[in-house]
Design a protein around this nucleic acid. Structure first.
Lengths: 196, 196
DNA sequence: GGAATGACAGATATTGAAATCTGTCAGCTG
DNA sequence: CAGCTGACAGATTTCAATATCTGTCATTCC
């Protein structure tokens, strides 16, 4: 069966919305555009998403969830060596963000705008990420290599202290020469702070 | 002699510009407004500042230099106890920013916009601040309480890691409950990382 | 009958003409 | 004559009319 005559699902709408956002950018992407891309009336889109904001949020969530998945793997087998685990996880977060920002700056800017609109969704994303970090820190405490009062607090501190290397607002700094060294310096200091 | 008939100096122009910015905001503050406030033609303003951008930069520099001064005192007598010095200096930086952002949010937003335009000036300001931090860290190394390879690198790492608590882009987070504790958690981790 | 449509009201965005601003400079003024 | 003025060209901003969009819903279509 041809794709264009398939049932209209939330999934297909989300894909079309991503495409429209990619093409038009966040300011000019309208739900009429999305409907046009799907060959339906915009009323049909509103059957699946109550508002334009809800549609954008759903797209943002998909995007962020994909990013979360990429890191979950590293978090999973970081238990063996917690110190290397923390370093690798933070480095992977930085590398992933930098790759996206550098590889397709316009798309990255688009999603940065969307993320700015979707406070709730972003909070959840950050909670997931700090959750992954918390698990690594906790493993380190249990293994006796880290000495922190509360792994949750420490993980949040790690995440916030490295904000310059993953917060999209700093994206333009990530191409400057020397960032890599700056990142290492911050992580060194933090990891030393975690140790017994 | 009445103020309005005094010689037109760069200083008087800067004061008038601050006032115009305070009143109209960064988007609507024009050179013509500044000239009007001073009772002169806008051509006279251009005698002292080559461009509108140069005028704004000069105002920004004044503002940032005042902030630098506030912290210089703390940096000066932080030599006695370097660890407390680092904590106090970072806390003072955070407190000063938070006070300004909370006390007059519109003015703070205005200067944030100006700072965003004046890359050069801001770089200099940051260099001054990390210079102050470097002095404290170096004192700690010499006193034998800190163990870091390079005080300059460590100071930059401290500054960048605490960005969330002084970068104007995060200003809206500074009023949330719990920030104080988050700040302490980050600083604790960093200071532990500095120790021998 | 469940899904899709398209016309509609109010909100938002676009457009182009008019107003204002930036930066320059020849000339005025004290 | 050093400092200031005001008229000017080109760039930018404002404003109001026009077009488009968002969100709803009575109606149509399998």
């Amino acid at each position: 069966m041809p794709a264009t005559s398939e049932t209209l699902t939330a999934e297909r709408i989300l894909e079309a919305t991503e495409e429209v956002l990619r093409r038009h950018g966040p300011a000019k992407a309208t739900v009429v555009d999305v409907a046009r891309a799907l060959g339906v009336s915009h009323g049909s889109v509103y059957r699946h998403f109550r508002t334009k904001a809800a549609l954008r949020e759903a797209v943002t969530k998909r995007w962020l969830d994909r990013a979360t998945q990429e890191l979950a793997g590293i978090a999973a087998d970081a238990g063996r060596d917690p110190e290397a685990g923390v370093r690798e996880w933070l480095a992977a977060l930085f590398a992933a963000k930098r790759l996206k920002a550098g590889g397709d700056p316009e798309l990255f800017a688009t999603y940065s705008v969307l993320a700015g609109e979707a406070g709730e969704v972003v909070s959840g994303h950050i909670a997931e990420l700090t959750g992954q970090l918390t698990a690594i820190v906790r493993a380190g405490v249990e293994a006796g290599v880290f000495a922190v009062a509360d792994p949750v607090t420490a993980a949040r501190a790690l995440f916030q202290a490295t904000g310059r290397f993953h917060d999209p607002g700093y994206a333009k700094e990530w191409e400057r020469p020397g960032v890599e060294a700056e990142f290492e310096a911050v992580v060194d200091l933090l990891v030393r702070g975690l140790r017994r």
